[in-house]
Each structure stands twice: as C-alpha cells, then as structure tokens.
C-alpha cells in the first residue's frame, strides 16, 4: 500500500537534508535571487552574510539557484550527522 508523504512533511524532510548555499566570492549583489523568490526570502542578504538559506519557509524550489546569473547559489547537503560537506 502506498502512503505518500504530505507536502508539509516532505518539505521539512527536504530542508533537513539540503539547503541553498551561497558562494559570496561570486556574488555581485544584483538581487535577482531575492526578486524571484516566490515567498520573498532575501536570498541576497544571505549571500552578503555568507550564510546558507536555512529559513524554514524556504521551499527549496531552486528558483534562485536557477536564476542567479553568476552561479553563486547551489544546493548542498546538510545534516547533523554528515561529516564533511560534500
């Protein structure tokens, strides 16, 4: 029998294992990422501060990753028990 995950559960699981990480050295703060975020997260501010987008509202939709003209953003695995980053 199939027990599909609810959207919310699936989302929480996704966030627990991966998030959007900026590479500040490539960023020119154009703001295309923030402008295209469907829920209005200021992704650019994360890039400025060099912090991953660990916002619990992040849909991990990948819109910011896809739209960034300088390849600043990428998904990275995260997790409490993950040793080494890649």
């Amino acid at each position: 029998m199939n027990f599909p995950l609810s959207h919310e559960t699936h989302h929480v699981q996704t966030l627990a294992t991966g998030h959007v990480v900026p590479e500040p050295e490539r960023c020119i703060q154009c703001g295309i990422c923030s402008f295209n975020c469907p829920i209005g997260i200021d992704v650019r501010l994360h890039a400025w501060l060099g912090k991953p987008v660990a916002d619990s509202y992040c849909l991990t939709c990948g819109e910011c990753v896809e739209r960034c003209p300088r390849g600043v953003l990428h998904f990275e695995k995260t997790g409490l028990f993950l040793e080494g980053k890649e």
Binding site: I28, Q29, C30, G31, I32
Partner: peptide
Amino acid sequence: SRPGLAYYLTGEI
C-alpha cells in the same frame, strides 16, 4: 549594486 545595472538594463530586475 553597480554590476547589477546590466540586469536592470535588460529588464530582469
């Protein structure tokens, strides 16, 4: 963002 001016010109932002 000065480098961002190019994207304002193309209408992306």
